[in-house]
Simulated assay, not measured.
Amino acid sequence: MADAAVPSEKGNLSRRPTGAKSEPPAALMCFSFQVEAVMQPVFFVMAILGCGDGSVDCTEARMVPARYETMAKCRADLANRIAANTDVPYPVIGADCRRMGAQMVKTERKPTKG
């Protein structure tokens, strides 16, 4: 009787005599790999920046407690938020809109041969 390579429970190949009547483990009977991810919306936040003279060496001073649906909506609110945050102890105050939220990519994974 000849030997044949068959997948083991760990996904490795092992030798088993051909003609053997044993069933493969239940985990090996279905090779369907699906990735299901909960998609969370992307949103934008604004950071108030404190900068040195000439708008150099900027540092995040605080985050604005608001979320924006789009980058355009965040940028439209920049002047208002800078005006509301003049208490930041830097010579120059700026703001920056940033993308936040989980970003997931769906990929299909194929079983590997070992």
Rank of each mutant, 00 (worst) to 15 (best):
P7E: 08
V92G: 01
N80V: 13
T86Y: 02
A37L: 11
D87S: 12
K73M: 14
A26H: 00
E60Y: 02
G54L: 09
F31G: 03
R98P: 02
E108C: 11
S8H: 07
F31K: 01
V38H: 03
F44W: 15
D57M: 02
A83D: 13
Q40I: 02
R98Q: 13
T59E: 12
M104V: 14
A61M: 01
S14F: 03
Q34P: 11
A84Q: 15
A47T: 08
A4K: 00
K73A: 15
A83G: 13
K113I: 08
K110G: 08
F33T: 10
R75F: 13
T112D: 04
A5N: 01
K10H: 09
A20T: 04
R98Y: 09
A84H: 08
S14N: 04
T86D: 08
A95K: 11
A95L: 11
G52N: 09
I93L: 06
V6F: 00
M39W: 06
M63C: 00
R75I: 05
A76N: 12
P41Q: 03
C97P: 06
M104K: 13
T18S: 05
T18L: 01
F31Y: 02
S32A: 07
E108P: 06
E108D: 10
R109Y: 14
T107S: 07
A72S: 13
M46L: 02
P65Y: 00
G52H: 07
A66W: 01
C74R: 12
A84K: 13
A5E: 06
K110H: 14
R67Y: 07
A61D: 01
A5D: 11
Y90S: 14
V56S: 01
P65C: 04
V64R: 02
A47V: 00
G94N: 07
E60V: 15
G52K: 06
L49M: 05
C97H: 07
D77V: 04
Q40H: 06
P41S: 04
A4W: 05
T112A: 11
P91I: 13
V38E: 00
P25E: 03
A2F: 10
M39V: 10
E108R: 09
L49C: 00
A20S: 13
A26W: 08
T18A: 10
A72N: 15
V35I: 12
V92P: 08
E23I: 05
A47G: 01
E36G: 03
R75S: 13
F43L: 06
R62S: 05
A102C: 10
M39F: 03
C58F: 03
G52L: 00
G52V: 03
R81H: 14
V105A: 15
A2H: 07
I82V: 15
R15Q: 10
V88E: 02
M104C: 05
T18M: 02
P17A: 14
D96A: 03
E108H: 12
